[in-house]
């Protein structure tokens, strides 16, 4: 295939050294993500999905091996790689608007322009009217949506999303899934998406990477070439769902 590889994980291992002993979490992980691809990392709970994303974004560094993004080795966080967090990581001292426009603002984009862009994403995630609210004044689901808007507003080339819809109700979740699909197909971005929901994985992914339980590595890959938008109850969808569920390691 002549596709351009943007993320290459090469023999990556990660050990956390704690007082209660060494904790090997990622063990010889290898995978490649291509340009404009939507990859879903899927695995049992606590298997190390967040850790893998932290390694890609450079928040953690591998103990062994290396991660190459767009030809460069990852040595720390960079605005080219954005992240939406599983647990909310908002700047509590900024209101919604200031949180969302943080990226453009530190990069010196004019107030008018960045306000417009931020407003666009705030509207998109359905928080219109809450621009001046501080995070403590928002519900759990609303905070999570601020995190999504903040990451999108920075327009990174690669966007990592760690179970971003965990706290949303079914409808909002459904809308956000459609929105993510639309943005990534329209604006062409490389997305690495973590979820523990099989349906969400199959609905969104070009490719699903199934991870082993702790210490994690790639167990299997599935290419999903069902036509979009996908139908949750089509026979192919259900068959794939069945297959993945069967292949997955038990959590406990």
């Amino acid at each position: 295939m002549s596709r351009k590889a943007v993320i290459e994980c090469k023999h990556v291992s990660k050990t956390f050294y704690t007082l209660s002993g060494d904790h090997l979490v990622v063990d010889d992980l290898n995978f490649t993500v291509y340009e404009n691809e939507f990859v879903v990392l899927f695995g049992p709970g606590q298997c190390g999905k967040t850790t893998v994303l932290n390694l890609i974004t450079g928040l953690e560094l591998p103990t062994k091996g290396e991660i190459i993004v767009a030809g460069e080795k990852v040595t720390g966080p960079s605005p080219k790689r954005g992240m939406v967090y599983q647990t909310t990581n908002l700047f509590m001292w900024y209101n919604v608007m200031k949180n969302v426009e943080f990226g453009p603002s530190v990069r010196g984009i004019s107030k008018k322009e960045r306000r417009k862009k931020a407003q666009h994403y705030i509207d998109l995630v359905g928080l219109t009217g809450f621009e001046k609210h501080y995070p403590v004044q928002l519900s759990g689901g609303m905070q999570q949506r601020v995190g999504i808007a903040r990451a999108y507003c920075n327009e990174p080339d690669i966007i990592c999303m760690d179970e971003p819809f965990g706290h949303l109700d079914a409808q909002t979740r459904y809308l956000m899934e459609k929105e993510v699909e639309r943005i990534s197909s329209q604006e062409k971005r490389t997305v690495v998406f973590v979820t523990n929901n099989v349906e969400e994985a199959i609905y969104l992914a070009d490719r699903i990477i199934l991870l082993r339980n702790l210490p994690t590595s790639v167990k299997k890959e599935y290419t999903v070439d069902l036509p979009r938008p996908r139908n949750y109850v089509s026979p192919e969808f259900l068959a794939l769902r069945e297959e993945i569920t069967r292949d997955m390691d038990p959590t406990l």
Binding site: T57, L59, P77, S78, P79, G82, F102, V106, P156
Partner: peptide, 20 residues
């Protein structure tokens, strides 16, 4: 982690200092 977020959003060291 918040420092990481700031860097990821493109903040320089000085900006991260004043804003985080």
């Amino acid at each position: 982690r918040l420092m990481g977020v700031a860097y990821m959003l493109g903040a320089s060291k000085i900006q991260a200092f004043f804003r985080v």
